[in-house]
Simulated assay, not measured.
Amino acid sequence: MKPRNKKQEQILAMSGQLRPLTTAQKQWALTHTIDNYALKFKKGKAVCLICGHEWEAEEGMCRCPHCGAKVEIKATTLRVVRERSYFNIVTAVKGFQVIRMFLMIVEFRKGMKANPGFVEIGSYWIDKHGHTTVVGLQRTLGHYIDSFAFGSPLEIRHDNDAFWHIADQWVYPRIKVTDTIKRNGYTTFTYGAHPVTMFQQLLTNPKAETLMKAGEEGLFRYLCHHPKEVDKYWDTIKVARRAGYKINDPQMWFDYIKMLDRMGRDLHSPTLVAPKDLKAVHDEYVAKAERQRIKEQREKDRKRAEED
């Protein structure tokens, strides 16, 4: 798709100037994003599929004495193993937060050093307002979500499930962020939250900035998945934090708070919202909520019977 405005023209131009993958990034992808094996044949030694080294070893997990890769030794008759994986490089370019998506395809052969191939699938460009632009390959029709026309150019594309899914795969640990994101509290990558959502929240949501600066990684991750719930119970979160309460299990805590809300309890009471034993009070209110549900259902059934 041709660029429709100056912003898209700028992004497409910068996309073509991005650096290729470094040797360190390629090696990391090979050793971390796929299952690494050393094949052990019926008669012979174990063979590391990464470097081709052979040595005497039994089945199980170990490290290759030559390249140091952690491998699983498997007894097999296969001579060729094919693997593929997606991974992401997170970087910053002229005020844009960029998530670059790559596909690695590698064929392992007995006695040969692995020689993987890499294809850039596309990239997410996030501006300072949290708006995203996608540059990527053209998708093809087929049964698989990640079917791409590898001969197509990297152009402005509509966002879709394939790009969104790939951007949530492996992330190279050396990450570069924009000055704005760093100012808004970014210290480390929050695994369990989609990278695009994470950066958008840090750029646009003051609550996300507050949680990140306070070191509340669990609550920040929950906000990325359930922003409306965090907005609704933000005052309750502040009450719990002022009481010195650490929300270690946000999923259970929010479930508990929602039950308190349905029952009309005071959500500004530190005693209620900052329990000493969250699991115990959660189970207690689950039982109360069930009894209340049964009581309400019986009342509905009684009224319906009277009408009949």
Rank of each mutant, 00 (worst) to 15 (best):
F118E: 00
T33H: 00
D35S: 15
R100A: 07
G151S: 07
R84H: 11
D261G: 06
L211K: 07
A57F: 08
Q25S: 05
A38N: 00
N36F: 00
G130P: 04
L103M: 08
Y233P: 00
C48K: 02
K110N: 11
F96H: 14
T197Y: 12
H268E: 13
S85V: 01
Y233N: 03
K70S: 13
D308P: 07
Q97Y: 07
V71F: 03
W125A: 03
F108V: 00
R4W: 09
F163Q: 02
L30D: 01
E209I: 12
G95F: 12
K26H: 01
P20A: 07
G111P: 07
R82G: 08
F150V: 07
K128P: 09
K258T: 14
P65F: 03
I105Q: 09
G52K: 04
V281H: 07
H131N: 12
L260E: 07
A280Q: 12
I145D: 01
L18D: 07
Y245S: 09
C62L: 14
M61F: 11
V230K: 04
L219N: 04
K295I: 13
D159I: 10
R139W: 06
F102A: 01
Q25N: 00
G142F: 00
I247E: 06
T188N: 13
D255L: 11
T23P: 06
M61W: 15
T180L: 12
A167N: 05
Q297L: 15
I99L: 10
L278A: 06
R63S: 12
E155R: 14
P153S: 06
F189L: 11
Y124F: 15
G192D: 09
G68A: 05
H143P: 15
F148P: 02
V286C: 10
D277T: 14
L211A: 05
I294M: 11
C224A: 11
A289K: 13
V134G: 03
W125T: 03
K228F: 08
I121P: 02
G95N: 12
